[in-house]
């Protein structure tokens, strides 16, 4: 990628859910950047806080959840300071979102054109209906759908087409960022590949940034420029796509990569399933949240959590293997109660 221009900076963002069993620390002090026109993959097993992160980015966390701290800088402004009206304008015009289930993310009693016209007129009331209709038509055609689909109700469209309509709803308002949360997960393989291709085309054509949230690291390898790896509410690794696949640093990233059927790290390593599962986030593990499952765990990992650290330009890791600590070599770190 040429000159990278910042679109958004997420800084120390934390989200908690209040549940009967206690506070769920779903996103804990997460920081990463989103550049203009890039496809950023956000990966991790399910339950790692990816969807929470995606929603938090638009300040769409509903009770019992709450953003408990941090900043979301978007085009230089901290949207955490926005009031309701500014937020409403921000959603749709700046950031748009595509969801996992295309069957339910469109209003079943509204036609496609009604959806698009509504999205336009809500944000730009001065746009006349004929004009909005023309824009809608143009968008539908750009997404490779026939014009007659404008008059379809959601149930008359296939899953892939519905997701394209969702994409189109973001694009008609010239959103700068589209968040796609498991947007291809429920589609079958061929349609998934088509949609993934289309997302790449859209990025080229509209210069829009995409945050692709998925548990499927193969998909991320396929379409992303950069990857953020999340585990148990923490960002574990951030890197461009090639280096992370060539040389994953974080043990969790390694584990994720090893479990893809078609990418082998080297010939001697067998395909495997990572042992254990993500922790219950009401009581996250002490120290490094990955330590109970980590094949390279050290005594310090159980006590102190490492910081996300830039180990080479643009490459961040949150792991003691790559960070110095005075007690790192010690075998006798006292485990705090």
């Amino acid at each position: 990628m040429a000159e990278k221009e910042l679109l958004s900076q997420i800084r120390n963002l934390s989200v908690e859910y209040k549940t009967r069993l206690g506070q769920v620390s779903a996103v804990d002090s997460v920081s990463f950047d989103i550049y203009k026109g890039e496809i950023l993959g956000l990966v991790g097993e399910s339950g790692c806080g990816k969807s929470t992160m995606g929603k938090a980015l638009m300040r769409m966390i509903q009770p019992p959840g709450k953003i408990t701290g941090g900043q979301i800088i978007f085009q230089g402004e901290d949207i955490m300071t926005y009031d309701d009206n500014q937020m409403r304008d921000f959603r749709g015009r700046k950031v748009s979102m595509i969801f996992q289930d295309p069957m339910t993310s469109l209003n079943p009693t509204q036609r496609v054109d009604e959806h698009i016209i509504e999205a336009i007129q809500v944000h730009e009331p001065q746009v006349k209906i004929e004009e909005a209709l023309k824009l809608a038509e143009k968008m539908i055609r750009k997404l490779g759908m026939q014009k007659r689909r404008m008059n379809s109700y959601p149930h008359q469209l296939s899953g892939g087409m519905r997701q394209r309509v969702m994409v189109g709803l973001g694009l008609v308002l010239n959103a700068d960022l589209i968040v796609a949360d498991e947007a291809t997960t429920s589609l079958d393989v061929i349609v998934e590949a088509q949609l993934a291709d289309q997302l790449k085309d859209i990025r080229e054509e509209f210069g829009v940034s995409l945050l692709v949230i998925t548990h499927n690291i193969a998909l991320v390898a396929e379409i992303s420029d950069r990857i953020v790896v999340m585990y148990a509410g923490h960002v574990m690794e951030i890197a461009n796509v090639e280096p992370i696949f060539d040389n994953p640093l974080h043990p969790y990233t390694r584990g994720l990569l090893k479990s893809i059927p078609n990418i082998k790290l080297n010939d001697t390593e067998e395909l495997y399933k990572m042992p254990g599962e993500p922790p219950n986030l009401t009581h996250p593990p002490s120290g490094c949240r990955f330590h109970p499952r980590c094949p390279r765990v050290m005594p310090i990992c159980k006590v102190h959590g490492p910081d996300l650290t830039e180990v080479s330009p643009g490459r961040f890791v949150k792991c003691w293997l790559y960070i110095d600590h005075p007690e790192k070599e010690s075998e006798t770190i006292k485990v705090e109660a």
Binding site: R91, S96, F99, D101, T104, N107, L169, L173
Partner: peptide, 22 residues
């Protein structure tokens, strides 16, 4: 709580419209 309401909210559709129309 259905997805299309969340999706509408994510598109900046005003809450009143979401409740009383959608």
């Amino acid at each position: 709580q259905s997805d299309f309401i969340t999706a509408g909210r994510a598109r900046g559709i005003p809450e009143r419209r979401l409740v009383y129309k959608h």
